[in-house]
Design a protein around this nucleic acid. Sequence first.
DNA 1: ATATACTATATGCAAGTTACACATAGAGGT
DNA 2: ACCTCTATGTGTAACTTGCATATAGTATAT
Lengths: 127, 127
Amino acid sequence: MPRGLCHRHGADRPCTCAMGNLYRFVEPVVLLLLKKHGPSYGYELISALNDHALTDARIERAALYRTLKQLEDNGYVVSEWDVSGSGPARHVYRLTDSGEKHLLEWSIVLEKLSQAMSNFVSDVKAQ
Amino acid sequence: MPRGLCHRHGADRPCTCAMGNLYRFVEPVVLLLLKKHGPSYGYELISALNDHALTDARIERAALYRTLKQLEDNGYVVSEWDVSGSGPARHVYRLTDSGEKHLLEWSIVLEKLSQAMSNFVSDVKAQ
DNA sequence: ATATACTATATGCAAGTTACACATAGAGGT
DNA sequence: ACCTCTATGTGTAACTTGCATATAGTATAT
């Protein structure tokens, strides 16, 4: 990061920049974007990702490309090269059935986590 | 972890075990416990921590001791040694004013994150 | 006496993660 | 020739973490 020092938002307000990329939940958001908008590629996903991200941190390109590779290694997406358009070839990823299941699992995990966080916040406010 | 393989819950249900310790939000939960129950020490905190954790993952002792040290390095807690009881000395931590502020910052971050996750879950269900 | 169980704190390390920088390359405009 | 935009990746030092290990005080049973 380096952790604990945010260059983007400064020291004047709390932000999630001190959390790692896993904390930014890149994986589930990519899975959802692929489900909602169909097959896509890194360069296109990066802007959508920053619009739909769960935290206020900017998603690194490097993190996204590595996440996509990892998703493919795990069988959650499959990819092919699109050389039809002009400009550099696009590495296009498509969600698999396994990936859809994985998205639902993420949904369950995040629903519980959301509730737990909400309870935590109430607990803090009650003090 | 190793990430992506949960030995505790098996492969049959989604869990948060594949997330790292940062994901388990050890820091804010420790801060809240110290605020609610007053000064405490690692061995006592570890069980309370596992009861109040935001995720279903077991909090590692090593992670807790390192978190406590880090909190002290950042001025969010101060510590002293309690040698009054029987048994080994206890490293007792107490929340500082700065630590209370930090807890409130965490609360803001987690409130936003909770809402974002909740929206994400609705979005998944809408598909 | 000695074994073992519980309390309590902490470090060592291999494996994994990440923020930032860097490398590569196609196409279009000036 | 040079710049800009599109597009995909890798290199690496610094950091994080899961698991094992080290240390040590006290109590209870054998």
